[in-house]
């Protein structure tokens, strides 16, 4: 067990390294392929007022002329140990984990990311709770009442949920439910309020995004749960559970649903991990200042350090989620041996 965890941890570290190399390669190579020079990159650090010579010096000092490997080494070291940026007029220390400075605001990227994280976490975890409860419950009932009106209606809606894009459902729900109309479930203002400032306002500001996002995922979970339940409810062990004299509710939940849980846990871990890197569409639709919105803004402004930071941050969550899922797998299914 312990060796297994250590092996998985090492694997996670390797994965992150690979992701960082790829990210670095893409974001440093692509602009060059598109015609950017070390000088034009350095110009972003020293500002538009600097003359050609200053830019030249900055490019040299920032190491834009070094071989790619050396540049990557510096980049990786910055994340692990922090970095000192010497751009000519002065030296700026950027503490670890250093993802560099924004081209636009000249502020370090990392604190920005930390700032955005609670928003995305609030969105992701809140939505996750809703979609798991709604999706699994719908799936179970659909499977038990297979072919009924409920089943058909639920599966039709689920098909819609899986296929409709979030900017559509998001806008529809905003039109129907947002403040000022009869079905309103949101508060005035509607902008994001941190949980610790005012929990009620926090919940109000997130209700619509939660529901919209949860709808998208719940649909998939309902279908997955239904398929899993249809399979497990035919298993011999269900017949055994009934033969013991268990009440049907216990048979379904304790034996049937438990048997169908493994794929759900896996998908759930990965989905949440992925969402923590930013629910791009939901956050932009509802103007939530989370990671996804941050990424979109960074891309629109071609703010490379920000984009890289957000990509690596997202990759980190995906890798960690994978790690947790692998470990959970053995908890959920005791037949899986961790070796």
């Amino acid at each position: 067990m312990v060796t297994y965890i250590i092996r998985r941890l090492i694997w996670a570290a390797v994965m992150l390294t690979i992701v960082s190399i790829i990210t670095f390669a893409i974001f440093f190579l692509v602009p060059r392929l598109a015609g950017a020079t070390p000088e034009s990159l350095a110009a972003r650090y020293v500002g538009r007022t600097a003359n050609a010579e200053q830019v030249q010096i900055a490019a040299e000092k920032l190491g834009f002329n070094d071989p790619l490997v050396v540049q990557y080494g510096r980049f990786a070291k910055g994340i692990v140990a922090g970095a000192d940026y010497d751009y000519g007029p002065g030296v700026e220390h950027c503490p670890a984990p250093c993802f560099g400075y924004s081209f636009l605001t000249r502020l370090p990227v990392w604190p920005d990311l930390l700032d955005r994280l609670p928003v995305t976490m609030s969105l992701a975890f809140g939505a996750a709770i809703i979609w798991v409860l709604a999706g699994v419950a719908t799936g179970v009932v659909s499977a038990l009442k297979r072919g009924s009106f409920f089943d058909r209606a639920a599966m039709t809606i689920a098909l819609g949920g899986v296929s409709l894009p979030i900017f559509f459902t998001g806008i529809v729900s905003m039109v129907v439910f947002s403040y000022g109309n009869p079905f309103s479930i949101t508060a005035p203002g509607g902008s994001y309020t941190p949980l610790l400032d005012d929990p009620v306002a926090w919940a109000y500001s997130l209700v619509l995004p939660w529901v919209t996002l949860a709808f998208l995922y719940a649909a998939g979970y309902a279908r997955l749960t239904r398929a899993g339940m249809l399979e497990t409810m035919n298993e011999d062990y269900i017949r055994t559970a009934r033969a013991k004299g268990l009440a049907e509710r216990t048979v379904v939940l304790k034996h049937g649903l438990r048997g169908a849980l493994t794929p759900l846990v896996t998908i759930f871990g990965l989905d949440v991990g992925l969402l923590l890197g930013g629910a791009v569409l939901t956050e932009s639709t509802y103007s939530l200042p989370g990671m996804g919105k941050y990424a979109i803004d960074a891309i629109t402004n071609q703010d490379l350090p920000k984009v890289m930071g957000v990509v690596l941050f997202a990759a980190f969550f995906v890798v960690v989620a994978n790690l947790i899922v692998d470990l959970l797998y053995a908890v959920v299914d005791p037949r899986v041996r961790l070796a």
């Binding site: 011999d236 055994t240 013991k244 268990l246 438990r258 048997g259 005791p334």
Partner: peptide, 23 residues
């Protein structure tokens, strides 16, 4: 149902599939 398990019980053919793998 209240008689099942108590008054009458059953042993099934394939105990691997007839027992829940997760308990």
């Amino acid at each position: 149902r209240t008689l099942r398990g108590k008054k009458m019980a059953m042993i099934f053919q394939d105990p691997l599939s007839a027992m829940h793998p997760f308990y």
